[in-house]
Design a protein around this nucleic acid. Structure first.
Lengths: 329, 329
DNA sequence: ATCGAATGTGGCATCGATGCCACATTCCAG
DNA sequence: CTGGAATGTGGCATCGATGCCACATTCGAT
């Protein structure tokens, strides 16, 4: 910047004003400075600016697994919105590991980011960040009674609609493949599943709720067990990973979908419309969810929001495709 | 840091040495300083450190579309390796738009990142970065005769093996669905396609090379045209997006795969093993490719490499599944 | 006992951008 | 024609970490 000042024949202070802040600067000087900057290829040093102004335009994004299209879409939505607002995205995978997550949070603190978007694994992580004055938006899930802003899919409504769709087709024994119910995500989907049974006055056999772990292989094994031990005419999987496992098992068994068994999933991802038959799913508008997170966070950073926490519920949409049909009688 | 110094009863210089650099610092003082830092929750300010040392531990990653599993896997591999080395990933989507790409490059310059990994859209972008002393690794493709390091899938070998597999099954009229051949990626795959025909002494009908654009819808239309205008017994699509379009068209036509037509694709992504029949593909080890990029870049940054450019070719692996079979006679 | 090396520690300038304050110039009103 | 506001511009300290240099202390060797 010194160089630009020399080149333009003004002081560094003036250069700063001319290029960035909206302080006094005559049009003539402004033009001259800009020309000079252009000429010598000057690029502002973010580190210096950040140091001085005690902030940064980088936003931390902490997710579990970029290879899962759900997180990838979420990140894509976030990035899109941040980029439009001239912010940068620092992306960290935590692999669902609390230790990694905490380490990442510390790194982001060191970077003095003004905000972080996180799909939290542990409540400690958002806590640590907030304690240090960093704005936090939790995405996709809520841990216990947290304090900060949060953006969620309307899990209960979505699962209720999906389950209702199957009940309406005459299914009365529907298996639910689910991995966790401690976080709001799983809890909501389970609640929706239950609610739909109430809506249709169908008794819910608790044994048909098959708990598994967040892993396609495990989901396949659990599906196998479910099918061996119980009579079901339909299966709902609580997310795209579990759907993968369930479908693999049905495929192995050469079960006719939906003639013998209907299959449906929460969280629509591209492959679900490519398989034969294509899967009935709930689209949770993941990209839009990402955008919402970013918009909310930016508004918070700019101080445009009242202090109380905001909960954004992104509507879920049922997409009926070929994998669900009338219950075999 | 001042606070830590006061807390520990030493000077800031000593704190710096005790915590970070490997200068003189007695074990006693070092321990005392660390305890003090811990107590008041001190976290190094990266901005200050970066400013002073004229560098940064953030690495820029410029890709076209995070929602495409290819790029997501690439980014995941990069992030994994960077994180292990205590670097951060600043991820930017350029949507394949040269203007966005250039804008992103400027932002990364402003951040004073020591290196960037990019799937380049324009040669200008790596050029600009290199001119400003930033190390660049190009991933997945090479533009013209570029100067820098590059990590590529062994496109020619992979495509040759895949095409050979089909020729070996007796197919003599194989359609190739491809979007571009100006970049090394498409050029390599096309070259492999040709080479295989030579290997098997099969005349290649140039009309069977169907040029389309990087978009599933367009690929579907192009596939339709290909099937309408020509007799083919097999189709190869040059990447996962085009495969999506091709499969959609075959599905619409209720073509029996592989009885009537065999389908194969370059770039294995998860859905390809889920569809019925599952697709024969070439796995380009995308995650490993990402890791390679990061390793190469870090080595470059650390000055561990000789000056001449390095070209890493990641082996591609043919995966034969159910979508390819003997040519109908 | 004395000198010089070895080993720690503090002082201070520095990285580049910013924003406050002071100062210079222009301009209009009285 | 003069005083004071209005409008620009430069000087300087500052953000926090670093690394050089100088200095202080300890220790062993002669």
């Amino acid at each position: 910047m010194q160089d630009v000042a020399r080149e333009a024949g003004v002081s560094p202070s003036t250069v700063s004003r001319a290029l960035h802040t909206r302080g006094y600067a005559s049009p003539a000087v402004r033009a001259r400075v800009q020309a000079a900057a252009e000429r010598i290829g000057y690029v502002t040093d973010h580190n210096a600016r950040n140091l001085r102004s005690r902030t940064s335009t980088s936003i931390g994004v902490l997710i579990s697994d970029l290879r899962n299209p759900f997180y990838a879409d979420l990140a894509a939505g976030i990035e899109e919105e941040l980029r439009a607002a001239q912010y940068q995205m620092v992306l960290v995978n935590d692999d669902g590991d609390p230790a990694e997550e905490l380490r990442a949070a510390e790194t982001l603190l060191a970077m003095r980011v003004p905000g972080v978007i996180v799909t939290p694994v542990t409540a400690k992580c958002p806590q640590l960040l907030q304690d240090n004055g960093v704005h936090v938006v939790c995405a996709d899930r809520e841990l216990g009674r947290s304090k900060g802003d949060v953006v969620l899919s309307d899990n209960k409504a979505g699962a209720r609609e999906l389950t209702g769709h199957l009940l309406n087709l005459g299914h009365t024994r529907i298996g639910l493949l689910i991995d966790e119910t401690k976080w709001s995500t799983g809890a909501g989907r389970l609640a929706g599943f239950r609610a739909a049974h109430l809506d249709y006055l169908v008794d819910l056999d608790e044994d048909l709720i098959a708990y598994t772990s967040f892993d396609a292989g495990a989901a396949q094994a659990t599906t196998r067990k479910l099918l061996n031990d119980h009579e079901v005419t339909a299966i709902i999987s609580a997310n795209n990973v579990l759907a993968h496992g369930a479908l693999a098992e049905l495929k192995d068994r050469r079960v006719k979908i939906p003639r013998q068994i209907s299959l449906a999933a929460y969280d629509d991802v591209p492959w679900m419309s490519l398989v034969q038959p294509s899967l009935t799913t709930v689209d949770q508008s993941t990209v839009e969810m990402g955008r919402s997170c970013a918009r909310l966070l930016l508004a918070r950073i700019r101080g445009e929001l009242p202090p109380q926490r905001r909960i954004v519920r992104v509507p879920a949409r049922l997409i009926v495709r070929g994998s669900t049909g009338p219950a075999p009688r």
